[in-house]
Each structure stands twice: as structure tokens, then as C-alpha cells.
Design a protein around this nucleic acid. Sequence first.
DNA 1: GATCAGGCTCTAA
DNA 2: ATTAGAGCCTGAT
Length: 103
Amino acid sequence: MSVELGGMMMNIIQQIPKGQVATYGQIAKLAGFPRHARYVGTLLKNMDAESELPWHRVINSQGKISLSKLDDHGMNLQIAKLREEGVVVNGDKIDLKIYLWRP
DNA sequence: GATCAGGCTCTAA
DNA sequence: ATTAGAGCCTGAT
């Protein structure tokens, strides 16, 4: 199950368009598992650098970067990558009204 | 197995 | 706008 789940999420995350973002819950939902939001983070933490996934386009439902409390370095990297794609980041916040991915 | 902690989310105060 | 509590699920001890 978890392998399949990871595969689904990976697939979804890869579909996030450049310059847009998606929330953990949204990804879990799109993958077909509505309550696995937390697993997304856990999984990404595990995968991290060795993957080509646009993990930086994944944020929490409040439009903020949850990494901020956990990994400053990673947070800065994420913000940098997002800005590279034209996403405006205020501190650790992103305007979901504008940048949220709507499939 | 039982327990704990975690890149979450929702609702209510 | 912020904070607190409860729900849900998984991976690691």
C-alpha cells in the first residue's frame, strides 16, 4: 500500500505546473487518499535530494512553508526555487489565491 | 504489538 | 489574525 501510495503522490507532485504550488492535503486527495496529508511530508523528508520531484512546490494549507520550523536551509532553498519560477513569497507565505494549482 | 512524534488539516474560541 | 485541541495515518523505536 505505502509503495503504491508513494508512487501516486510522486505522480501527482510531478504534475504540478511550474510557477504554481499545491498543498499536502491536496496532493493526498488527488492521489486518492484524502487523509494522508502528513504522509506526504514524511515521504518527502525521506526522499529529499535524491529525487527530481518539485517538492518545493508543496506547502501547507495555510500557504506557508512548514519547513521553516524544522530546516532553515531547506526552507531557503525552497523559497529560492519558487522565486526562480516567478512565485512571490512573502517571508514564508505564498498567496494561494493566485498560485494554488487547480487541476 | 504498543507508543511516540511528525514538512498536516479542520473547527472553534 | 492567532492559538488550541482533536482527528487521521504512517514510519521508527
